[in-house]
Amino acid sequence: MAERQLNQILTQLKSSPLPYTEASTLLSKAKLLLLNLSALTPSSSTPPSLLGLARDTYEQGALASIRAKNSDAFTRYVNQLSPFYELPPHVLPSGSERNKVTGLYLLLLLTQGRYAEFHSELEALSTMGVDVEGDRYLGYPIRLERWLMEGSYDRVWKAMKKGEVPCEEYGVFSDILTFQIRSEIASSSERAYPSLPLSSTKSLLFLESEGAVVDFARSRGWIIKDGTIYFPSANAAQEAGEEEQEKETSQMIIENTLGYARQLETIV
């Protein structure tokens, strides 16, 4: 009885992307049913059919919450899913959404800067014998991470545009990623260029118009003069920093020498 109800809800969820409020009411209903069937977490006594249903429910929940940009809810669903993914294939045949959800989770970790967890997750995937790089959903965040790390921001940018995105849910992160790479580029430009012409800054920062460039430059405190951007703040900060460093160096040397003297005293 409950199982049939669950099936109905699932088909409803899968059929078309519902608005989040509707989806979440359906999901909470589904979770209540799972609770009644005591299949919220897998145990040895749970029948395989129910396991599949429970997993599908969580997967739909994860996708719905990512569409609604609710990263907390998404993380919760992923955590609930992980025991199901650990099950052997003869108990629970792997479904279609697994790599998609895992890939999304990786992307989430990447955008939140949780690199340690990102790599831990990756390590787990590669030891499980999944072809990580070849997979459409999993390869995407991994490539992004590699490019971000080496600094090929233009490739990241291209990967986000032009239908390179494996599925629509991945598009959710593009805003965050764009913001991220833009600030990365800005901070490296401050150090790398003495000055930049406005026109080329537009393409450098992947902005649409020069007006947007001016806005962005203001937000970062850059000075615009005769169609050229100067980064005075960085220079000033650097000089001040150097002076500070000088002071620190002498202080450090004094401290070290005193330390050596004390140690010598104890040894001799």
């Binding site: 600094g151 090929s152 233009d154 260029y193």
Partner: peptide, 14 residues
């Protein structure tokens, strides 16, 4: 590409 090289070098400087 050349653009990649530019970004990469800029990052290395930073």
């Amino acid at each position: 590409s050349e653009e990649s090289a530019e970004y990469i070098v800029a990052k290395a400087i930073r």
